[in-house]
Amino acid sequence: MKTYMVILPLSSATILVSLPQGADAQFVVGSVISSTVGRVIRAIDLEVQRLQNQTIWLQNAQKALENQLSKLKLAEISDQTQKQKDLFDNYYKELQTVKSVIAYYERVKDMTEKQAALVSQYNHAWNLLKTDSHFSADELSYMQKVYSGILEESVKNLDEILVVINSFKTQMTDAKRLQLIDKAADRVDTNCIDLKTFNNQNYTLSIQRANSENEVFTLKKYYGID
């Protein structure tokens, strides 16, 4: 059986894996994507939980300082009071930064969940199509190539998402981070649209080849088409 090499993301690194061609390769790639997606989502959830706890602490500290400063008379402003004001400002800036990072993480999580949905939709569609007698072996082989291409693009999407996640550990500007997120989001959306379009084309072709109204009804039910 022929094999080919594919780069798969794993946590924050990438690995080379030798895979068989065809449907088996698609299954393995899909499984690795699903596994990686699961780890990424869990990591994001843990990080967001930590940041949310930090947000609560900062909000409480900020509120305490605000209450303390409100009790001071303007005429009694001293160096110590100014230090408290500076501390208040620092808490406020840090709080805004944390909230911004949480928002970024939530958006990255949304992209990652779309990746998981893409693999799930591919598995569902392929399991239906490969047992449909309306398609020839050559047509199924062509479908395999198209689906493989979409899955390989999905691997690239995960790599880009991992780059975004790693950016939170560096001194990257918000503008640059947002640029990375927008780029990754566009790729994810494109792949999801491509998969849905290709699935619908195949479903429609099968229905068009039906020999009777009863078969049309059966196929629509088989593919979940209203």
Rank of each mutant, 00 (worst) to 15 (best):
residue 46 L to G: 02
residue 220 K to M: 13
residue 106 E to R: 15
residue 103 A to P: 14
residue 70 S to G: 01
residue 197 T to D: 05
residue 126 W to M: 12
residue 68 Q to H: 15
residue 100 S to L: 13
residue 152 E to I: 01
residue 44 I to M: 07
residue 221 K to N: 09
residue 17 V to Y: 15
residue 119 V to N: 00
residue 162 L to A: 07
residue 188 V to A: 07
residue 185 A to L: 00
residue 195 L to A: 02
residue 182 D to H: 00
residue 151 L to G: 03
residue 3 T to H: 13
residue 80 Q to I: 13
residue 119 V to L: 10
residue 23 A to D: 08
residue 184 A to D: 00
residue 49 Q to W: 02
residue 26 Q to S: 00
residue 22 G to N: 08
residue 33 I to R: 05
residue 103 A to M: 15
residue 219 L to H: 10
residue 158 L to W: 03
residue 100 S to V: 08
residue 46 L to W: 03
residue 132 D to A: 10
residue 43 A to G: 04
residue 130 K to C: 02
residue 75 A to K: 15
residue 113 E to W: 11
residue 108 V to R: 08
residue 122 Y to K: 09
residue 90 N to D: 09
residue 216 V to D: 03
residue 35 S to H: 06
residue 125 A to M: 03
residue 116 A to C: 01
residue 30 G to P: 02
residue 189 D to G: 11
residue 151 L to V: 09
residue 175 A to S: 14
residue 207 I to N: 05
residue 134 H to K: 15
residue 110 D to P: 09
residue 10 L to R: 15
residue 139 E to Y: 03
residue 222 Y to S: 06
residue 207 I to H: 10
residue 92 Y to K: 15
residue 29 V to G: 06
residue 148 S to N: 03
residue 153 E to M: 05
residue 96 Q to E: 15
residue 62 Q to A: 09
residue 120 S to F: 13
residue 218 T to L: 05
residue 140 L to M: 10
residue 176 K to Q: 11
residue 42 R to A: 01
residue 201 Q to G: 02
residue 105 Y to N: 14
residue 178 L to D: 10
residue 169 K to H: 10
residue 211 N to A: 04
residue 187 R to A: 07
residue 135 F to N: 10
residue 194 D to Y: 06
residue 3 T to D: 12
residue 170 T to F: 03
residue 131 T to G: 09
residue 104 Y to V: 04
residue 101 V to A: 07
residue 83 K to H: 13
residue 75 A to I: 10
residue 6 V to T: 09
residue 55 T to Q: 14
residue 34 S to Q: 11
residue 197 T to K: 12
residue 77 I to P: 10
residue 124 H to C: 14
residue 221 K to G: 06
residue 15 I to S: 02
residue 49 Q to N: 05
residue 55 T to N: 14
residue 113 E to Q: 13
residue 35 S to K: 06
residue 32 V to R: 15
residue 202 N to K: 11
residue 195 L to T: 02
residue 222 Y to K: 14
residue 179 Q to T: 00
residue 122 Y to V: 11
residue 197 T to R: 14
residue 39 R to Q: 04
residue 172 M to L: 03
residue 178 L to S: 12
residue 201 Q to M: 03
residue 192 C to M: 11
residue 182 D to I: 00
residue 29 V to S: 09
residue 46 L to R: 14
residue 34 S to T: 14
residue 52 Q to H: 05
residue 170 T to C: 04
residue 6 V to P: 07
residue 181 I to Q: 08
residue 12 S to P: 11
residue 85 K to V: 12
residue 189 D to A: 12
residue 11 S to E: 04
residue 138 D to L: 04
residue 65 L to A: 13
residue 21 Q to I: 02
residue 221 K to S: 11
residue 48 V to K: 10
residue 213 E to D: 12
residue 94 E to L: 03
residue 177 R to E: 05
residue 91 Y to T: 11
residue 184 A to C: 01
residue 91 Y to N: 13
residue 19 L to W: 14
residue 138 D to C: 02
residue 108 V to F: 00
residue 47 E to F: 05
residue 35 S to C: 06
residue 18 S to I: 10
residue 68 Q to C: 13
residue 184 A to V: 02
residue 72 L to H: 04
residue 145 K to I: 14
residue 109 K to N: 11
residue 125 A to Y: 01
residue 96 Q to I: 07
